[in-house]
Structure formats: C-alpha cells, structure tokens
Amino acid sequence: MPSPVMTVSHLGKRYGSTVAVKDVSFDIQPGEIFGLIGPNGAGKTTTMECVEGLRRPDRGQITVLGLDPQRDAAELRTRIGVQHQEAHLQKRIKVWEAVDLWASLYAEVADTDVLLSQLGLNAKRNAWFVNLSGGQKQRLFIALALIHGPEVLFLDELTTGLDPQARHAIWDLIRHIRDRGTTIFLTTHLMEEAERLCDRVGIIEHGELIEIGTPAALVAKHCPERSVIFTSDEPDVAERVQSVPAVTSVEHNGSTYTLRGEGEDFVTDVINAIAHQSIRIKGFRTETPTLEEVFLKLTGHGFRD
C-alpha cells in the first residue's frame, strides 16, 4: 500500500471557549476523493483549514505530502490548491485578471486558456466577478485552485447553492481532475454528492470523527435493512411470502406489499419465493437505504448550534 498523501492524528482545535475540533484522525490515500460530512458547526472547515496550514492546531499531528503544514507552509502552498467556503474576490475584478493574478503567484502554471475553456468560462473572460452567477463563481474558484496543477485539492462545500446541472458538471470535472492523479479532500452537506463522488467519507459531529469508510460499507453497517415493494391482486399474498427466511416484516396497503429484511440474499430469496409460488405481480421495486439515512441515524435529527 502506498503511503498516504495526508495523515491527521488526534487533531484538536478550540476558539476561545468553543471546542471546534475535539479529536479527529484519518488518512487520505493518493488519488482518493475523501469527503468530510457533518452537521453545521461540526468542525469540517476548521479541520480542513488546519490541514491546509491556515490554522494552527492546539493538539495533534498533521502531515501533508510529507510536509508539516505549519513549519513547511511556504512549500505546501505551492503544492496544494484551495477553494474556501463562501469566498469572494474583488467585486470588479475581471475573470481573466483573477486568473492572470493567480498565475503570477506560482512558478509553474497550467495553460490558463485551456483551463478557462475546460471550466466553461471562456465567454465570461471579461466579466466582473460581481456579475457572475453562483455556479460561474464556483467554477472560477476551482480554476484558481487548479492553476498550478496542485497535487492535493481542498474543496470546502463546492456545490452549495448550485442548480443540478451545474452540480453534475462540477462532479464530472472533479472526477476528471482525480483521474489525472490529484488527490481530493472535500466537505459537503449533500449526501448525494458524498455518495456519488467520494471513495470514502468521514462523518464528523461535535468535533469528533464518529465513522469513516466507503459509502456502501457505511450503509451496509448502519442501515442493512432492504425493502421489496410489489403489487399483486392475488389472494393471501402476505401469508404466501411470510415464510421466506430473510423477511422480517410484511405490510400491505390494498394490493401493495412491503417486505423488509436484511442480508445479501434477501432480494433474491423474495424473488425466488414469488416465482416458486407463481404469484402474478404487477409492479416490483427494491429500496436500499442511502448515506443520508446513515447520516441522520448517526447524527440525529433537529437543528444544531
């Protein structure tokens, strides 16, 4: 196994009397897309900014690309790309001016024209920052973060407030960037984003990492229950499928039956039973819990501070 791109161990950070990060440890492997998810105020941004070297942690060790973010800040800054939550530029800076300014800060830079057209910003080259739409601003920030071909890309809530088209376009872009070898550390509130984009996610609450793993593994571990929902007009259907070993409950509402159960063979067993009993069915679908259900189960419902 290659050595991790970044290692965070027992990170702790407080602001005055507020404990923002209590105890967070994780590794990110080369070429991985790692996502941190958690309720508002859980400590995602703080964790990310400690890793970027923008904040000095109170406790713990961080290594990024073999560097200490505090001690080797200067070198680290040339090798990482950063997109902040809720950032702004000068109101009246033009898109090309921002790109040109950022390009002047690094020794080696990508072809900025290619970058702008990849991000669909070519038509907006001469537009002022204030006149860009939310999605265009986000794409500009991604362009600025990518200008020097960083080895690690940090993205703090990159698709918040974007429409579905823009979001999907940005997801494609992020996958593309990863395929070129960049490691990506992101935070998000969108479980769909975490599930589709991230190889692994960490769930953080009240400054503590409470779970970490692939989305599929987390779902299998915390929400193993599956449902099969079908409709049939035949009599005694409930009794006829009750005997399937994996089924734990059967509910029906008119001609719609909902079967719940656990285990990898649950759906197959139900299908076999239906076939075996020659039940005529009209509709059939399965429901698998998503990361969102895992998230709500682990972090509870209701508002946070």
Binding site: R77, V82, H84, A87, H88, L89, Q90
Partner: peptide, 16 residues
Amino acid sequence: LYREGGFLKRLRATPL
C-alpha cells in the same frame, strides 16, 4: 471588505 469576503484568507493560501 476583503477580510469579510474571505479574500485575504484566500490569498494567504497562496505563496504570496
């Protein structure tokens, strides 16, 4: 204004 907009922080994440 730049501080509030996170622009100073953003620049600080560059080699400047």
